[in-house]
């Protein structure tokens, strides 16, 4: 979407550059002023700086950053100070694993359940379909904290308090995911293909698996990523339903580091860095897909 657009325009621009004097200058809309790059560079700097700062503080210790003019470069003690996080909370590694486990499971379930429901809403023909789609959209307007007390009571009734189940089950499928998949399938899966497959005698499940899934794999992957990120980053709900350190997710563990009496910035930011680093590594590989996922969702939204 991004790079392909440049190619077809360039020859046109060149062609017009021959001939008359006036057109030798590029038309206004083709010029990129250096100010654009300066602004983008500045915004990128601001976007990245807090992550850099986490590392600076976590690698220098409190003394270095508690000066009138604090140091701005990465110090030598990163691993030593990150070690303090594991000293303060020996279960920090387990917390990271718990979060990874919850996130992966939630992501897989979201992709499956949202895509089959989205497929049904976009392409299958059953009574009450339109009304139900409206219902799904309406539920997206409800603030999530409205039902949080009864949800807690429900978890207590099921005996799920203090288990990872309390994090996984309520997050298996969301109205947002269903609606998003509906929009994607509506736009990306042509009816002709489905009809052709149907005439060839394929059943609904087969059509879903052999026709729909290959076409929406990219978008499903993006939905899975966003679900994983949401599960990884959620902290209020885990904080409420978990109180056994063995079950903590990484955000709860980071928050626990904070509750000491003195503010230990190196420890806090070290924990924040450990909780963020896996996502940044992930982002290096999937960032571009997330960008196109956000933009795809936007055009259709």
């Amino acid at each position: 979407m991004t790079t392909t657009q440049i190619a077809p325009e360039t020859p046109v621009a060149r062609a017009t550059a021959h001939g008359v004097k006036i057109s030798r200058r590029k038309p206004k809309w083709q010029r990129v002023s250096p100010v654009s790059y300066i602004i983008l560079g500045f915004v990128t700097f601001i976007s990245v700086f807090p992550f850099y700062w986490m590392i600076v503080v976590a690698s220098n210790g409190n003394e270095e950053v508690s000066k009138e003019v604090p140091t701005l470069i990465i110090g030598p003690r990163l691993f030593e100070l990150l070690g303090h996080v594991f000293d303060a909370n020996p279960l920090f590694g387990l917390s990271m694993w718990n979060t990874f486990f919850v996130g992966t499971l939630v992501a897989a379930a979201q992709v499956l359940f949202c895509s089959i429901a989205g497929f049904a809403f976009a392409k299958l023909n059953f009574k009450g379909r339109k009304l139900m789609v409206l219902f799904v959209v309406a539920t997206m307007m409800l603030p999530s904290q409205l039902g949080i007390i009864p949800l807690y009571m429900l978890m207590a009734n099921f005996g799920w308090v203090n288990t990872l189940t309390a994090l996984i089950v309520p997050a298996l499928v969301t109205a947002f995911g269903v609606f998003w998949m509906r929009q994607i399938i509506d736009a990306q899966v042509p009816n002709e293909l489905l009809e052709a497959a149907s005439i060839d005698g394929a059943g609904v499940v087969r059509i879903y698996w052999r026709v729909v899934v290959p076409l929406i794999a990219q978008s499903g992957f993006v939905l899975g990523l966003f679900s994983f990120l949401a599960a990884w980053n959620d902290f209020l709900w885990p904080m409420l339903v978990l109180n056994d350190p063995e079950q903590f997710t990484v955000q709860v563990a980071v928050n626990q580091l904070q509750s000491a009496y003195t503010i230990d910035y190196a420890l806090n930011l070290g924990g924040a860095f450990l909780a963020t680093a896996p996502l940044l590594v992930l982002f290096i590989f999937v960032g571009r897909r997330l960008v196109s996922g956000v933009m795809d969702g936007a055009v259709k939204g």
């Binding site: 990128t44 930011l269 924040a272």
Partner: peptide
């Protein structure tokens, strides 16, 4: 891509950094 980096991180970690 760089613009989207802040969006993937936890509010918690960010609030700690910004608090500092």
């Amino acid at each position: 891509t760089m613009l989207l980096v802040p969006n993937i991180t936890a509010v918690l970690a960010i609030a700690i950094v910004f608090g500092q």
